[in-house]
């Protein structure tokens, strides 16, 4: 089953110095259970591509389908709902909410979706265990956790609403190589259990964990 499908997607940024084509006629699809990496040098448009797949950005032309449904024309509220229910985001800088504890960070998307607090807490604890964090760390604020621990919490948060896709933008970009490996092992394990994962990276080591690599140069898919 197809989870993501892009048809002739072009993204042009209008800048004062003129327009920049970040994506140029990109067509691709990602099936359920795929583990895909998108590689390319900086400025090649890979983050733009990930943002468009994640419904954070809209293409200038072309069509995006998530789970077979067309995304263009959806309102801000509908896109937000789509992200909440079907996407899990993992960022390079972890981006946990600093006022919330690790556990609360994981609970947050579930509460947004209307789950009861007790239930969310239970599932949050399960998820933290599943990403390999000790029970006790759940009560810590992000600032009290190491980078690797924060990224595990972020992955648990991404899994909170049982999403169709996990989108990771340079998930190991801020981690040392040992921790990077353990995070990639974790993502690989999640993929083996059936998660669809798309990773943007410029690190060949990260790409080596994935089953399929898309190369992006100057906004075009190559190879």
């Amino acid at each position: 089953m197809e989870v993501v499908r892009l048809v002739e997607v072009t993204k042009v940024y209008e800048l004062p110095r003129g327009s920049v084509k970040a994506l140029d006629d990109v067509s691709m699809s990602v099936g359920a259970g795929d583990f895909v990496s998108i590689m390319g040098p900086s400025g090649s448009g890979k983050s733009t591509l990930l943002n468009i797949i994640g419904c954070l950005d809209t293409p200038t032309s072309g069509e995006v389908f998530i789970g077979g449904a067309r995304v263009s024309g959806l309102s801000d509220d509908e896109l937000t709902r789509l992200r909440l229910e079907r996407m899990g985001f993992v960022f390079q800088h972890f981006n946990l909410i600093p006022t919330l504890t690790a556990l609360e960070n994981v609970e947050f998307p579930m509460l947004l979706r209307g789950m009861r607090e007790r239930e969310a807490k239970e599932r949050g604890k399960q998820l933290l265990r599943a990403v390999g964090l000790d029970e006790g760390l759940g009560e810590h604020k992000p600032s009290e956790l190491s980078g690797g621990e924060q990224q595990r919490v972020a992955i648990a948060r991404a899994l909170a609403n049982d999403p169709d896709i996990i989108l990771a933008d340079e998930p190991t970009g801020n981690l040392d190589s040992k921790t990077s490996k353990s995070i990639m092992e974790l993502l690989k394990m999640l993929n083996e259990r059936g998660r669809t994962i798309i990773v943007v990276t410029h690190d060949p080591l990260v790409a080596s964990y994935t089953a399929r690599t898309l190369k992006l140069v100057d906004g075009r898919l190559v190879g």
């Binding site: 994640g54 954070l56 801000d76 509220d77 937000t80 709902r81 992200r83 909440l84 229910e85 996407m87 985001f89 960022f91 981006n95 909410i97 600093p98 947050f108 998307p109 947004l112 979706r113 948060r157 991404a158 609403n161």
Partner: peptide, 16 residues
């Protein structure tokens, strides 16, 4: 700003 961006990305509505 960045935190608002994160909250919006992971599914917080404008209203929230």
């Amino acid at each position: 700003t960045k935190e608002i961006g994160v909250m919006r990305a992971i599914g917080t509505s404008r209203r929230g």
